[in-house]
């Protein structure tokens, strides 16, 4: 089967699953339930799409299939911000405080952080991208220590609120935020389009790309900013899902068996939506909210990652 056909099939599965989720067992107050479910699906499509998309770009930039933007430390920073708010102002503030403000503040801090990180590490000539990532990861650990410290001090009841923030969930997605997210993501994608044609060439590696006339450093910096924005938006919208990108992009590469970004990106976006909608369905209907989607996805994604690492492969 060719990759075009596979892409179409994935798209169909994604749409069918979304339909199933929206219309399954639709009883009671339809006027309330239906819009809620649709908003949830839209949030999932946004997040899943943004994560899959940015992870694919990120892997091309780093020329590596085992790295995801989550190593930039943004997830940990988000948790730190959330915990910090609860720690200082109490759990009520998080409920009281307009979620729009929280959302915008979180995105602002994450994007600002990544810009500072890039700026700091890309001055000078020897800008090794792995170096950037390692620093990001250490800072992530650093944020994690602070978060842990505050979490222990938080009152156990308030901690439940913090815990909700720790795990991605679409159950309480705010409709306004979905609209804002759509605007930001679309804007980022429009900005991205001018760089789209370079992706295939950049996958050959820096030297080949420069040789073929790609303004490599210029594009990498811009793409990294786009990645940071997309990851920040999706994290602030439903919470961190660290290993989703790793999982879906690798599955997409395995399935598509092509280097063409067009198909890999679409493939990973659809796989991501399938995983999230399917996962959410399983969480609601089988686990009856006993666990959260991000915990399951991180678990599966993590195990799959270890499998990938142990499998003999040339991609890293």
């Amino acid at each position: 089967m060719g990759y075009k056909k596979k892409t179409i099939i994935l798209a169909i599965i994604a749409i069918l699953l979304a339909m199933l989720y929206i219309f399954y067992d639709l009883r009671g107050n339809i006027g309330y339930i239906l819009p809620r479910r649709i908003i949830k699906v839209v949030a999932i499509v946004l997040t899943g799409g943004a994560i899959a998309f940015s992870t694919t770009i990120f892997m091309t930039i780093t020329n590596n299939r085992i790295l995801t933007p989550s190593v930039l430390g943004l997830d940990s920073l988000y948790l730190l911000v959330q915990t910090f708010i609860i720690f200082i102002f109490g759990a009520n503030s998080l409920v009281m405080m307009s979620s729009n403000i929280n959302y915008l503040v979180s995105i602002g801090i994450m994007v600002l952080f990544s810009l500072l990180l890039y700026r700091f590490l890309f001055r000078g000539e020897k800008n090794n991208i792995y170096f950037l990532l390692l620093i990001g990861m250490i800072l992530g650990t650093f944020f994690g220590s602070f978060t842990d410290f505050m979490q222990v001090l938080i009152d156990p009841n308030e901690f439940m609120v913090a815990q909700d923030r720790m795990f991605a969930s679409v159950n309480n997605v705010n409709t306004d935020l979905v609209y804002i997210s759509i605007i930001i993501i679309v804007a980022a994608l429009i900005y991205f389009m001018r760089f789209y044609k370079y992706l295939d060439v950049m996958a050959l590696g820096k030297e080949h790309a420069v040789n073929l006339g790609v303004p490599y450093d210029y594009i990498v910096k811009r793409l990294l900013v786009i990645v940071a924005i997309l990851i920040s938006v999706s994290t602030a919208l439903i919470g961190p899902i660290t290993f989703l990108g790793l999982l879906v992009v690798n599955v997409s590469y395995e399935l598509m068996k092509t280097y063409r970004h067009f198909y890999v990106i679409w493939g990973s976006v659809f796989i991501s939506i399938i995983a999230l909608v399917g996962g959410q369905f399983v969480v609601e209907k089988i686990f009856t909210f006993d666990t959260t989607i991000s915990v399951i996805i991180n678990f599966i994604g993590g195990v799959y990652f270890i499998y990938l690492l142990l499998k003999e492969n040339k991609s890293w």
Binding site: I66, L67, S70, V71, N128, Y130, F131, L133, L134, M137, T141, F167, T242, F243, D290, T291, T292, V295, I296, N298, F299, G301, G302, V303, F305, I306, L309
Partner: peptide
């Protein structure tokens, strides 16, 4: 530089497995 990066990722995955059980 790459090796510790992989190691830290690996560590994160192990903790995500811990989180899975701890959450439940």
């Amino acid at each position: 530089i790459f090796i510790p990066l992989v190691g830290l990722m690996f560590g994160n995955i192990i903790s995500s497995i811990s989180t899975f059980f701890a959450y439940r």
